[in-house]
Amino acid sequence: MEATRPVNGKVNQLGLQKIEYDGSKTTLCAGCGHNSISQRIIDAAYELSLPQHKVIKLSGIGCSSKSPAYFMGRAHGINALHGRMPTVATGATVANHDLLAIGVSGDGDTGSIGFSPYKHMLRRNVPMVYIIENNGVYGLTKGQFSATSDEGQKTRYYGTQRFPSLDMCMEAIVAGAGFVARSFSGDAKQVRELLKAAMAYKGTAVLDIISPCVTFNDEPDSNKSFAYGKANEYPLHEIGVVLPFEEIQVDYEPGTVQQVKLHDGPTIQLRKLEAGYDATSKMGALARLDQAREKGEFITGLLYIDESRPTLPELENLVETPLAWLTEKDTRPSRESLDQIMREFM
């Protein structure tokens, strides 16, 4: 590795170049929104100086779920079953609470087959970044509607969507999630900053990222298309993540910036574009999302943040050492204790 690093290359706090956060070459369609999200994950991990051996990448099944192979090649990854990635992440983060789990799912994987695992992961507050690469269609099986496609939406082969969509952000908030964001894969800066904030957040951080399917759902009249996103994205605020070693800029007008300090040190700064939007208000977030759906608005940003709920490993009151690394000394009770139990059954 050392040999491949160019002299004078730009490095992060671990002395790593950004290229060292790459994965293998993508096999997704050229121009797929998912590829730019993979690139933003690489950006965020590099900027946060994440040690890759402490990262696990997880996914379900679908186009989105292939992407963990395309970033952070030095982290363990698991491409699990369709819709079941949250359960695997639940087990893995309990087994080793030192790891940062990054899950990548899609709208089919999360909104339909994996809807129950999604909701239960949220109510347990499994510590992980949960990314939904949302394009409104099943790409890998050639363009069927997913549950996040909007009523009235048309696709090339499957006609018109007759049912209302599920909003993964509203579902997340209702299920108790404390970090809920919506973004657009075409908005590189926002995606990157949201990812950094999500990676620093301690519980489940949901990022529902509209990520156009260039093959099956990119007609200009589709609200999951690239053109639509570019033209209609309405950010509620401009998000920036200030790392502990960086200086916070305080030259904003009072009331125009919302700051949320995370347990881990970083501070999220939300410079308000929509005056009055309060990202710490659960009902405010739900009401705004509902309004957006009614009006057909494409709002983005950190919709809701609250870091107060304990995570699953915290609730399990686990020992400091990850369960995975415990030895026989810790996990096999004494001979005397078994003798005692046997006496109780005599």
Partner: peptide, 22 residues
């Protein structure tokens, strides 16, 4: 962990074992 169904239960087991738990 009491899971939401048996699929989730085995999913948690697989995830935990993969990460090194028994």
């Amino acid at each position: 962990i009491q899971a939401e169904d048996e699929i989730a239960a085995i999913g948690m087991v697989v995830g935990a074992s993969w990460a090194g738990a028994r």
